[in-house]
Every structure is written in C-alpha cells, then in structure tokens.
Design a protein around this nucleic acid. Sequence first.
DNA 1: TCTGGGGTCCTAGGACCC
DNA 2: TCTGGGGTCCTAGGACCC
Length: 433
Amino acid sequence: MKDVQTFFLLVDCNNFYVSCERVFNPSLEDMPVIVLSNNDGCVISRSDEVKVLGIPMAAPIFQYKNEIKLHNIKLFSANFPLYGDMSRRVMSIVARHAPKMEVYSIDEVFVHIKGISHDRVQYFAKKLRHRIKKEVGIPVSIGIGTTKTLAKAANYLAKRTVSSHGVFLLCSCGQTDICSHAQIDNHLQQMDVGSVWGIGRKTRAFLHNHGIYNASQLKHLDHAWTKRELHKPGLETVLELQGVVVKKLENLHKSKKSIICSRSFSKPVTTLEHLSEAVTEFVARAAEKLREEHELTSIITIYIATNRHRKHDKQYTQSLSIPMPAPTADTATLIKTAQNILTKIYKQGYRYKKALAMLSGLMRDDSLQDNLFGSSFTPQRKQLMATLDTINTTWGSNTLMFASQGIAKPWRMKRAMRSPRYTTKWDELVFVH
DNA sequence: TCTGGGGTCCTAGGACCC
DNA sequence: TCTGGGGTCCTAGGACCC
C-alpha cells in the first residue's frame, strides 16, 4: 500500500467538434475535417489530418482556400446543440465511474481519486477511455498527475506520445522509476512553456525573452522572482508543476457572475434600426439564460464595435453599463434599457460588425423574497416570462419573440455548412442503412 | 468578400473616507 | 509654495481559459 496516492485526471475529448461530426458521419474518418466558428469565419476544431497540414487553430478560413481544395478538406459550420448533447453523454459516463469530478469545459472534465496506486489509476483511465469510445464514439485522452496543472501537462503528452495509447501519468512521488524527478523533468522538457496551462501568449513571449523555453525550466523558477514578474497566477502555476496542490477540484455548481450574448454580423450593419434589432435579440437571449439560472440582474451592458480587421474603415467601439432600478429578469424591461443605452452610444456613419449584451450584478431570484417593492418584476411578470420560456423551449426558440427583435434580420449569422442536429431534432435525423 | 463566443480572475489606479 | 497616511471600494483593462 506504500505507493498509494491522490491523483487528478484530466479527461479531454480529442478534436471534440470534429469527433462529434464523425460519430454521425463515419465516412469522415481519416479525412481532413474542419469545424468553423459562427459566420463560418474561423477554424475552431481540426482533425489530426488538418493539423499536419499546418492550418492553425482560430485561423480565418478564407486564407486557406487553396489547401482546402488541394486536400479536399471537409468543412462544417458549428453545430453547438449537437456538441452540447454529445458532451452531456461523455460527462454522464465519467460521472458513473468517478467518485469526484469537475466539468471544466464542453470537452474536458477533471476527476479526483484518493488512495489509489499508480497501476490502478492507469488501469482505471484505460477502462474509462475505452468505455467512452464504445458508448459514445468519442476518442479521449487522459492525463494523470498529482495536481491539475500536471494532469493538464500529462494530457498534452498523452496526445503526442503514440506509445501512451491515450493515457499518460506524470507523478513525482519518487517511489518508482517513472515517478522520479528526473523523469518528470525529462517529460516537461519536451513541452514548450507556452503549452503549460495558465501560460498564454504574452507570458510565453516574456519567458522566452528571459531564456525560459520549456515547462521544466518554468518548474524550477525562483518563487520570489516568479511572484514579482508573473504575479499570483504565475506563481501558482510554478507551484503546481512542482506538485503542490493549489487548484482544488471545484465540485459544486457555481453560479455565474455574468451572462453574455454576443454575435458578429454576417454583413456590416449601418442603421440604428438594424443594430437595435440585433441588440434586442441578444438581450432577449441573455435574459432567457438568466432565468434558466434562476438569477436576476442589476446591471446591463451594451457594447458595439466596427470590424477591427478592416484597417481602412473608420473604427469605433463603445460600451455603456447602466444599473437597473431594481434587480429583474424581465425581458421587456431589459430591452427598454438596452435600447436606451444604444441610442446613447450609437454613432452614425460607421459599419458595425459586432454587438454584445452583458448582464451582471447577478443574484438568486429567490433572494429578494417578498421584498420586491418598487420592482417592476412582479409575480405576474415573472409568470409571463415563465410561460414565454416554456413555449420557446417546447416549440423552438423564437416561436414567441418581441417585435423589436425584427423580422428581416439582414445581420443574422451565416451557417452554410451545418450538419443535421442528429441528436436534438427529430426531423433532422437521418437513418443510415 | 470573408477574421467566434462565453466566461473568470487579477491588478493598478482613482475616488473617497477618516 | 508648502500640503499625511492608511484603508476600502470600485472600475477598467489585461491576461488567461476553452
């Protein structure tokens, strides 16, 4: 029982959105596949075959027209309802087998296992990986470490080490050969410092300037220097690489601090009328999410921006936050305030590309109890909103909507290459024989 | 012609108070 | 022209994550 330890595992779906498309369209297997962002603008998921071609993440797709033609790359518009549903299936399998877990993103989940040997934890990971592939069809990689940051690093190595078969252990307990500090440093040397969890573009450039190129060098940095130059988050990363647990598993459903709805427009918007329609729709969507979370908002922010990539265009971005007279989740009230804000920040003569609605200063909708005096969000309004949400959930979003959301919507986003919503829309289900 | 969306946390600096 | 010190709170902006 000597080698019993506490481990963090990171289960990460490989090329998640592409893998989702492949589950329902097996002919895509071994083909180069790309999933695009809204408006079919940027690359947001790439198959291995695409990565090999050197097409980077977040690349604007129009810059790679030639490669797409030459290599017959299959393109898909993002199909988030499908990906969300597939994510829930993966997570529910993990939940069945893991004692404690934290869903970290749509395609990643941390697992915490106490009092287990190295062999057992690796066996557990292999079985879990196999089960997810078999039951949902999604390939995953699993990184195992004694901290979250080491589990992340192990996951990075799992994806790049063929012999690991998708499971990689990074442990520095020193009890076995593979867990010696020398071994860990060996592995971390293979990793660019910018690939460490928490080290972004700016910090990577700073570290490279100081001669720190790989994760092992980062791990051995002086604490005082790190705190001074990289502040608290940087020091936490260094400690975690050394095996000190700083980031715990966040187990509970944390309530959000803000809710955002923003979209880029498929073509530039110039009139206040169309901009107002877009903003209204974003506010309505944000308010819907607010009620799903059973929260009220007390601050609303509207932001509008021109296309910063068009250097020759006149540029203008502006935002304004206004506190609500009383916390509310009433779409009509929020729309009124939002339109008010918009008339204050809108300037004529610009080609707008993007707008955003943000609700913040959130509180539980039961926290005010009977203390809603002075609030326009009366029980009657609350009931009306609930009815609106029920209808839109049952019959599809925007079955009922506010007139100011507009009908024509020339700014609506483009999704020319979306796959069917196999798992969430009956009428789009295709039967394969 | 065409460049995503939704979040969190931290820090610095200003306002304000005694 | 000189003109404290310390604390708190808030906000904007930056950096990061997926």
